[in-house]
């Protein structure tokens, strides 16, 4: 059976220096329900790779396939409904929390599953939140979790999570990790996480993709990666938590 998402020889030039590659020749695939943590130093193009997978960024070379069907055969909105990107900096749409949560059902003319939305909000420790409150008034952490639940309610086949817990305190972060793990189990949703938190990458992934030097240097089982990465770059990366945590969105 064809993988859920496959990337074949994806290359992307630097936006500032068009002659140089940000990364090139990236080939990888994710199966239904698989959870991948995408690791690498700042500026290696992790966010760009996820945005490419969500068709929010153009590629300079290569091909994407969804369940074996070339991306070109899809209408972009159909593709994005299946593979949805959740940005690191959450954007609240105009209106209340409830209007934000209803976005996916209103875009696609589907019934709003309120019990599911309430359950997700409670699991994300936002059960106390007044849904009538203007979304713009939420705190950074509340916005990040509301944006995440808003994307979950789309029920995509795959979620692309760009440092989705970066504004959260440890308790909320753990709650979100549990919620997403349960969601993946229940719904069979594949997930690709960008994280700079090694503990998190261990607990939320079955596979690690490690990017460096403009390549996808490693791709393999999470346990095996942390027990003994096969490249020097990955070894150094695991051992230098301070530099890593200083890294931001690229």
């Amino acid at each position: 059976m064809a993988p859920l998402l496959s990337m074949n020889r994806i290359s992307k030039r630097r936006p500032d220096k068009a002659r140089e590659w940000l990364f090139d020749d990236i080939t990888a695939a994710i199966d239904k329900g698989e959870r991948v943590a995408l690791l690498g130093a700042s500026g290696t193009g992790k966010s760009t790779l996820l945005r490419i997978a969500a068709l929010l960024e153009p590629i300079d070379d290569g091909e994407l396939h969804l369940e074996g069907i070339a991306q070109i055969s899809f209408k972009p909105e159909h593709w994005r409904k299946k593979i949805s990107y959740v940005a690191q900096a959450p954007v609240m749409l105009a209106g209340t929390v409830e209007q934000n949560l209803r976005t996916a059902s209103e875009l696609h003319g589907t019934l709003f599953d309120e019990p599911l939305a309430r359950r997700c909000m409670a699991e994300a420790e936002l059960g106390h939140l007044d849904w009538k409150k203007p979304a713009a008034e939420l705190s950074g952490g509340e916005k990040q979790r509301t944006a995440l639940v808003r994307s979950l309610l789309l029920r995509p086949a795959m979620l692309l999570l760009d440092e989705t817990t970066s504004s959260l305190d440890p308790t909320s972060k753990e709650a979100v990790e549990h919620m997403l793990n349960r969601w993946a189990e229940r719904e069979g949703t594949a997930m690709a996480w960008i994280t700079h938190d090694m503990e998190q990458s261990r607990s939320v992934s079955d596979q690690i993709w490690f990017m460096g030097d403009g390549k996808l240097l490693e791709r393999g089982d999470t346990k095996a990666f942390f027990q003994g990465p096969s490249t020097e770059q990955a070894r150094r990366f695991i051992q230098k938590p301070i530099e890593r945590e200083a890294g931001g969105n690229e």
Binding site: E77, R80, K81, A87, V91, A94, A104, L107, L154
Partner: peptide, 16 residues
């Protein structure tokens, strides 16, 4: 830009 991209990422059409 963020608003437009958020709606696109949720499967919205260009018009939406």
């Amino acid at each position: 830009r963020g608003e437009v991209e958020t709606l696109l990422a949720l499967g919205g059409t260009a018009k939406q």
